[in-house]
Amino acid sequence: MSAVLELRGVGKTFAGVPALRDIHLAVGTSELVALIGPSGSGKSTLLRCCNRLAEPDAGDVVFEGEPVPAGGAELASVRRRMGMVFQAFNLYPHLNALENAALAPRRAAGLSHGEAETAAREALERVGLGDRTSAMPDGLSGGQQQRVAIARALALRPRILLLDEPTSALDPELVGSVLRVIRSLKEDGVAMLIATHEIAFAREAADRIAFLADGEILECGPPAEILDRPRTERLQSFLSRL
C-alpha cells in the first residue's frame, strides 16, 4: 500500500521545549490512522506539522511522494489536497454554510462561482446538511457546525483529511452525528489521520492506532494490539484511566 502522507523523523520545539521528537508515521490510501494520547502530548502539533501550519524543525513531511513545499503557491496547492478539521470548528462566522464550503474552491482552487457552489453543495449533502446550506454558523448546533467544517474540507476533494479532536468540543449527544460522518467517509475510501479521545471509535474504525506521549510515538499498530495488549507502562496507565 502506497503512503499518501508520510512523516520521516519530524521534530518540533516550542521555545526550547521539545513538542515532537523523531516522529515516523505513514498513512496509506484509504487508511484511517487514529492518534491517541494524553492532552499536551503533541497530537495537535503533529497534525499541524503535516500541512505546515506549524513549521517542523527537523525531518521531512512527504505528501504523495513529494516533500511538502515550504511556502508559496506550491504549499497552498498541497494544503488544498490535505483537508483539515479543527477541534473548535473555526467556521467563518460571517459566511453561511454554503459560502464557508465554497470559499476555497472559488478563491484557492480557482473554480468558477457555479462550480465552487456545486462542489460545496455536494460536500454539504455528503455530511447530511444539504438542507442547511443558507444557515449561518451561529444558527447551527455544534455537531452541525463540525459537519460543515468537514464539508469545507471535502469540497476541495482532498486526498487525506487531518482531524484534530473533531468531537472534543461537542456535547455528548452530538458526538455520534460527527462520528457517523467520519465512518461513512472511511467507507468511501478517504484517507484520514485523526487525533481523538474516543477510544471506542478508534477501536472500531481505525486501521491503526498510534499512541503519542511527550511528543513521541511510543506504540503503533492495529487497534486490538494497541488497546488490548499495551506493551509500555505509559500506554497501560493511559488506558486504565479512561
Binding site: R48, S77, R79, G83, F86, A88, N90, A104, A108
Partner: peptide, 18 residues
C-alpha cells in the same frame, strides 16, 4: 480575530492575502 480563522483559511489553501 481568532487565530483559528487564519489557520482554517490557510489549511484550505487560501493565500495569506486571500
Amino acid at each position: 480575530v481568532n487565530r483559528g480563522q487564519w489557520e482554517a483559511a490557510l489549511s484550505t489553501g487560501l493565500s495569506r492575502g486571500e
